[in-house]
């Protein structure tokens, strides 16, 4: 009896775990939808900014701005975007691995580094590996807000303008689609130079006037486009985290199902053999009484 009862107890606890993982999957699905909507809504801004930037590049000829200048990197900053919570498969681990690879490369090039991390998981993982972390953020969950990201971006712009950092990279999970997310390190500063708007789209009447001047607009536009790209990193990271959790929890629920099936089979077999044993005992007793 003891074995059957132990199996039953295990089966119950696996069932409870399955309930939890299934709920987590549903929550992640709902959050993913919301995060995805936000990400889609934010796309307009980036598209419009890129359009204006392209127009200026097409009209203004050579575009020169401190944010576009490539300086020899003496001191580089790395921003690592991870989640606050685990149970999302390889999501946090992959980003941390990217970050460590980048730091290793900079170390070999003798570049001083300045590491900032968002997300408790990344903070503990990097601290464990002995990385010195300058600033930590744990406030970003599944809905990063622009108002919260903006101060971080502004601080980076200020230190970059002051020459305290020569480059800024962000390690995060880029969202390509529901089936594909990948951990990447992207260089945000210096900015990639704007591409002139394609000639095919441009009409003759598209000769824009600039108020007050193309240079003045560029001065404001480049920081704005940096902010937009930084914000997009945060949004991508949030969406990818939910997808990763969804997939991980789906797998966990399926595994729990398999485990329950196995345990049930073992339990039934144990119970049956116990019953058989008892019947044999009774029969044995009857035979003994007959004699």
């Amino acid at each position: 009896m003891a074995k059957a009862r132990a199996l039953d107890r295990r089966r119950k606890s696996v069932r409870n775990i399955r309930k939890i993982t299934r709920t987590m999957e549903l929550i992640a699905t709902a959050r993913f939808k919301k995060a995805m909507d936000r990400s889609v809504a934010a796309r307009d801004y980036t598209t419009q900014l890129a359009k204006i930037l392209g127009n200026i590049a097409a009209v203004g000829g050579d575009v020169a701005h401190p944010l576009l200048e490539i300086r020899p990197a003496k001191r580089a900053a790395l921003l690592v975007l991870t989640g606050n919570r685990g149970l999302c498969g390889g999501y946090n681990g992959n980003v941390v691995r990217q970050a460590l690879a980048m730091l290793g490369q900079w170390k070999s090039e003798r570049v001083a580094t300045d590491v900032s991390v968002s997300g408790k998981r990344g903070i503990t993982a990097l601290r464990f590996r002995g990385v010195e972390i300058a600033s930590r953020y744990t406030a970003f969950e599944d809905k990063p807000e622009f108002a919260a990201v903006a101060p971080i971006g502004r601080a980076y712009l200020d230190t970059y303008a002051a020459g305290e950092i020569d480059r800024l990279d962000v390690a995060y999970t880029r969202f390509h689609g529901i089936a594909k997310q990948e951990a990447v390190t992207e260089t945000l500063l210096p900015l990639a130079p704007p591409q002139a708007a394609g000639k095919t789209v441009k009409l003759a009447s598209d000769d824009y006037d600039f108020y007050p001047s193309a240079g003045s607009i560029l001065e404001e536009l480049l920081p704005a486009s940096f902010m937009a790209r930084l914000f997009k990193c945060f949004l991508d990271a949030a969406v990818s985290e939910q997808v990763a959790r969804m997939v991980a929890m789906k797998a966990a629920t399926e595994n729990a199902g398999g485990l329950i099936k196995n345990l049930s089979r073992q339990y039934n077999r144990a119970r049956q053999s116990q019953i058989t044993g008892e019947i044999m005992e009774i029969l044995g007793g009857v035979e003994a009484l007959k004699q």
């Binding site: 204006i52 200026i56 009447s205 824009y208 006037d209 600039f210 108020y211 007050p212 607009i217 404001e220």
Partner: peptide, 13 residues
């Protein structure tokens, strides 16, 4: 600055 229909294209800060 006011903008009505058929305004000349411009980009402003």
């Amino acid at each position: 600055r006011g903008v009505g229909r058929s305004h000349a294209p411009f980009i402003g800060r």
